[in-house]
Design a protein around this nucleic acid. Sequence first.
DNA 1: CTGCATCCCCGCCGATACTG
DNA 2: CAGTATCGGCGGGGATGCAG
Lengths: 132, 132
Amino acid sequence: MDKQAGTLEGERVIMVMGEPFTADNCPVRDVLANVAGKWNSLILLTLDEGPKRFSALRREVPDISQRMLTQTLRDLQRDGYISREVFPTKPPSVEYALTDLGRSFLTIMKPLVTWSLENHGAIREARRAFDG
Amino acid sequence: MDKQAGTLEGERVIMVMGEPFTADNCPVRDVLANVAGKWNSLILLTLDEGPKRFSALRREVPDISQRMLTQTLRDLQRDGYISREVFPTKPPSVEYALTDLGRSFLTIMKPLVTWSLENHGAIREARRAFDG
DNA sequence: CTGCATCCCCGCCGATACTG
DNA sequence: CAGTATCGGCGGGGATGCAG
């Protein structure tokens, strides 16, 4: 059989860890988008402590604007990482919590956080060496 | 002792995995920037197969522009993830390879790739459910 | 073969003000 | 309390052309 599995009509394919991807529709990029956003990971890590209300997140995630908090929460909910429950109190309150998918993701994510803490010094030094 | 360790002069602090961060100067964000770029992770994963020349990377990473390949490679080199060796042949050739730091990073990165492959379906389904 | 420079579009994100 | 709407800056990144 041919090497590049299912290469149709000039679709270019990259092999990553034994799996074929096209530049578009790349699961890796799709997931990394959640890691990439400026606030996404911070919010997920904060929710790892337990369910939180909107205002609690606003307090605990420093310097995030209301706009970004709302938007990022909606993105995370849309992708299934967190759930959103509205309590019809007066005034209303909304509670956000990790889903199973979100917890599963954090399990993989946390080692990356740990690695960042451990190797940030080496990276900053590499930068200084490169710039000088 | 006080809760928020070392909160000075209105500097807001977030606790993540037992470590205090400010919104600026956050190691996690700094490292995630490397994961976030559109091409960074793909290049690192390609180099995991072994050292490659510029033109080889251009071939194996589909649809990347020359500009982005050059730029991303320089960023990765600057942060110490890859090395760059110039062979004064005619015409010259340049070989890129993972450093120890790069390999260390990939060790942590790969589970995230695996997770992406396994859970991409669930995420796309969550999206459809949310949108509909 | 490798890399740099230029132009330009577009989406992220911040600031601010306004609703149920 | 939670969310929406609007404006605007800034930077990532694609296309193209030039240079050692």
